[in-house]
């Protein structure tokens, strides 16, 4: 017999409310997805054909992948603005490596991209965790540094599909049971990260750090080490995304992934990850990426002038944040009125 079972209904109400709001965030994105897809499909039925849906998922999967890494970072009350540049650097180096060493096994080549991302993430993490520099500043700096290195190494060249091994290009186009392999890889990363964040001690500690950094230190959580780890993971995932970028597009120059970081941060926020840390899920962030990608595609299908597309995307982002904020306020109020009362 636990105390919970005898607790008055008011308190379980607080719990129910919390889980419900938690679900509402993800459910809300699904509803929003339906709201953009259904009218589009009515106007243009081809929009929901398998090939078109596959393209949607493929286009969203790179941003979704980056959003997973970003979520880990944002949960700890940090941000990684360098992901677009890390992706670009990794993509170019991976492609270059395949081109220069035609015999490279597929996984070794992808591993090369991942290692590039790892090194970039390590640099970010060391500066933030040990140097005690705000992550916004550090990653804004490395955003330019990594991109600059990328341009310097590329020297205006680009690697074409004809120089890449077929195994890599096949990876970009192949499917299992009709689902593109790239999407499956993204889903696998999402699942692993979700389980880590939900069920492992160090994963929970990331939430604790973002929720109350001072208390985390007092609770004996190794804040610096955990922060370092999140940046390394974010870099590593961006490195993987870079290698997959090559597989998907085949042609790579130094500009790959430019400006992607803002799409990623937008996806994370739309996905219900609190920008000041402490709450949110990778599934939500990935759904956020899917929603933003879908909106862009829908606007194209609906033949909305390109000039308006960005403004509409931005307005949707703002409304998502507004809804999120209203929900948070309502929840906080509800929790206050159902508080404790355990010792009347």
């Amino acid at each position: 017999m636990t105390a919970t079972a005898t607790a008055p209904s008011r308190r379980t109400a607080a719990r129910r409310l919390t889980t419900r709001v938690g679900r509402v965030r993800e459910l809300g994105i699904v509803v929003a997805l339906a709201l953009v897809v259904i009218p589009t499909a009515i106007v243009n039925p081809r929009f929901v054909q398998p090939q078109s849906l596959r393209d949607l998922a493929l286009n969203a999967s790179i941003v979704a992948l980056l959003a997973v890494g970003q979520t880990l970072v944002v949960i700890t009350r940090n941000v990684d603005l360098s992901v677009g540049s890390v992706l670009g650097l990794s993509a170019f180096l991976t492609a270059q490596h395949f081109a220069d060493h035609p015999g490279t096994p597929l996984l070794a080549g992808i591993g090369f991209g991942v290692a590039t991302g790892f090194a970039c993430g390590l640099l970010n993490g060391l500066l933030v965790a040990l140097g005690n520099v705000p992550s916004l500043v550090v990653t804004l700096g490395t955003l330019y540094v990594f991109r600059g290195v990328d341009y310097a190494l590329a020297q205006g060249r680009q690697v074409n599909a004809s120089n890449l091994p077929d195994a890599l290009l096949d990876l970009g186009g192949s499917r299992v049971l009709g689902v593109p392999v790239l999407v499956l890889v993204t889903v696998a990363v999402i699942v692993v990260a979700a389980v880590y964040l939900r069920s492992y001690r160090s994963g929970r500690e990331l939430y604790a750090i973002g929720s109350n950094p001072e208390a985390a230190t007092l609770a004996g959580i190794p804040v610096a080490r955990r922060t370092l780890t999140t940046f390394v993971l974010s870099g590593l995932i961006a490195g993987l995304a870079g290698a997959l970028w090559v597989a998907r597009y085949g042609t790579v120059d130094a500009a790959a992934g430019t400006g992607l970081e803002l799409q990623v941060v937008a996806a994370v926020v739309v996905g219900g990850v609190a920008i000041f840390g402490g709450s949110g899920t990778v599934a939500g962030a990935a759904l956020g990426a899917l929603l933003l990608g879908t909106i862009t595609s829908c606007l194209v299908v609906l033949q909305i002038p390109a000039f308006w597309q960005q403004a509409i995307s931005g307005a949707l982002l703002l409304s998502a944040i507004t809804v999120d904020r209203l929900l948070a306020l309502r929840l906080a109020k509800a929790l206050r009125t159902t508080e404790g009362t355990s010792h009347a």
């Binding site: 636990t2 404790g340 355990s342």
Partner: peptide, 24 residues
Amino acid sequence: SELFARLGVRLDPARPARGLSIAD
């Protein structure tokens, strides 16, 4: 729940800490 029972209080272990009174 066992710990709370020892302390003689009834708090839902699953609810978030946000919103608890200082005493709780």
